[in-house]
Write a protein that binds this DNA or RNA. Structure first.
Lengths: 114, 114
DNA sequence: TGCAATATATAAACAACTTATATATTATAT
DNA sequence: ATATAATATATAAGTTGTTTATATATTGCA
């Protein structure tokens, strides 16, 4: 419903925010959660999600815990100590972004009816 | 202040919304207006803005009017008839996106304090 | 005289995402 | 029995889009 190009830049922050909230999550779970929170309006693709998770891991923002669940491997992602401070900053930026977008979109369409 | 990667996907919609609002604008004016509306938090780069404007023109969403102002050429961009219906759709999508982001960011950080 | 602001534009390099593909298990429906 | 959907992770090629650097030119201010 919401075109993917709108979501692009926010993907990293969304992932970090969810991990902060839920302690630890695996990839598939993250996509489900985002769909649930947005009534199916935002659907993350794995081709975008996994590279982001791997990159955040290589940057020391996340670390993983592998577990066996019903003969399937589940890779949980968790925030590192450093990751916790990164999330706080990212969420602040996202809030500023949301505010800025609202100011742009909410401006009245001219006072033509006044 | 707001990292550019957050803005990326919304650039097109922001430009279209401003053109709808102001009738016609030139590139430099668009960057000024966005800075003004967001207290300097969003700064568009020309390397991103002009390709977007040119693409929208080639798609028939915008058309241009060149004028001479103080010996400088100003290229005004305006919405075509088709462009007007595109903007309406884009703004709707952006509003849905903003709502979705808010739902993700506003969820309580666990009921750990309840 | 030089710097900042105004004004548009392109190109090379880089980053990021989409689409397609591969693999494997479990549950549900037919 | 068999097929399909859901669960689950991952990579690669191709495409798209952005950053950074660069070019050009005028006006106003110090």
């Amino acid at each position: 419903m919401i075109p993917t190009d709108l979501i692009k830049g926010s993907l990293k922050t969304i992932v970090l925010k969810l991990l902060k909230e839920n302690g630890r999550m695996y990839g598939y779970e993250i996509t489900r959660k985002v769909e649930e929170l947005t009534d199916g309006k935002i659907k993350l693709t794995y081709g975008a999600l996994y590279p982001v998770l791997h990159k955040l891991e290589s940057e020391g923002v996340l670390f993983t815990e592998s577990e066996n669940f019903n003969n399937r491997i589940r890779i949980y992602y968790l925030l590192t100590t450093h990751g916790h401070s990164v999330v706080a900053e990212k969420i602040k930026e996202l809030n500023e972004f949301i505010e800025s977008l609202q100011r742009i979109v909410d401006t009245k369409p001219g006072l033509s009816y006044a």
